[in-house]
Amino acid sequence: MSVEAREARQPWILLSPALSAVALLLFVPLLFIVVYSFWLRTSTGADQVGFYLDNWQEALTDAFYRDILLNTLKIAGITTLVCAVMGYPSAYFIARSRGNKAMLLLLLMLPFWISYIIRTMSWINILGVSGALNSLLLSIGLIGEPIQMLYNEVTVILGLVHFLLPFMVLNIFVSLDGIDTTLEDAATSLGATRWQAFLQVTLPLSLPGLAAGGLLCFVLGAGTYITPLVLGGPTDAMFANLVFEAIITQLNWPLGSALSLMLLAVLAVLVGIYNRYLGMAQLMKGLG
C-alpha cells in the first residue's frame, strides 16, 4: 500500500471508534424510532407491527400537538434571548479579564458538577412559599404573606436559563477571545467612543459565537422535559413532555416515536438554517 493511501486511511481508522459509537448509539436507535412510528398501539398496550400512517396523521394534523410545539418554541426562544442578554456581558468580562480568566472559566463550569435535576429542584428551596426568598422578604417586612412564585411559565424559563446560560457564555467567550483587542483601540484612535467601538467592531465580530450559543440553547431548551415537570404548573408542558407521556404513561410507543421525530425534524430545520448561513465550525469551536 502506498504512503498516500495509508495516510488517507489514517483519519478513518482513528475516527472509526467514534463513528461506530455514533452509528450504534444514534443512527440505529433513530432507525428503530422511524420504524416504530409506523406501528400501532393495541388496546392492551402491545404494538401492532405494520405500516400505518395513523400516528403521523395525528401528529401532523391535530391542533393540540401544533399548539404545544409552538409554545415549546416560544419558551425556547425566550430562554435563548434571556441567555444572550445575560450571557454576553459575562462572556465579555471573562474574555477581557487579565490573569484570572482560568478561574472565571472554572467558576462558569462549576454548575456542571452538580446534577441538572438537583440544580432544577434547588429553585423550590429558593422560590418556594417557605423558601429562602420568601423568608428573606418576610423577615425584612417587605411582605406580610409569602408570595406564590413557583410553578408557572416564568419559573420554567428561569430553570432553563439556569441550565443553559453556561453554554451561551462559553460560546460567546470563545468568539470574543479570538478577537484582537487592538481593533477596539484602533477604532477609538480614529474617533469612535468605547461604546461605538464595541457596537461597530467587537459585537459584529462576536456574532458567530452568539449565534452558536443561541442555537445550542434553543435546541437544548426545546428538547427539555424535566424543567417543566419540576418547575411548571399544570398547563406548562413542553413538547418533550408529550413524548414522555405517550411513551411512558400511555405506553403508546408508536405515537411517541412519531412525535419525537416531529420535534427532531423541526430542530433539524433550525440547525440546517444555521449551518446554511453561519456554518457548523463556530459551534464546534464553542463546544470544544
Binding site: 423550590i124 418556594g128 412559599v129 413557583l150 410553578y151 404548573g233 399544570p234
Partner: peptide, 23 residues
C-alpha cells in the same frame, strides 16, 4: 380541578414536600 390547582405531583416524595412546605 386543573384550573384551581397549583401543581400536579408525580411522586410520593413530591406529595410530601408540597404538603410539608405548605405550598
Amino acid at each position: 380541578h386543573r384550573d384551581l390547582a397549583l401543581k400536579y405531583w408525580g411522586s410520593g416524595a413530591e406529595l410530601m414536600s408540597l404538603l410539608a412546605e405548605e405550598e
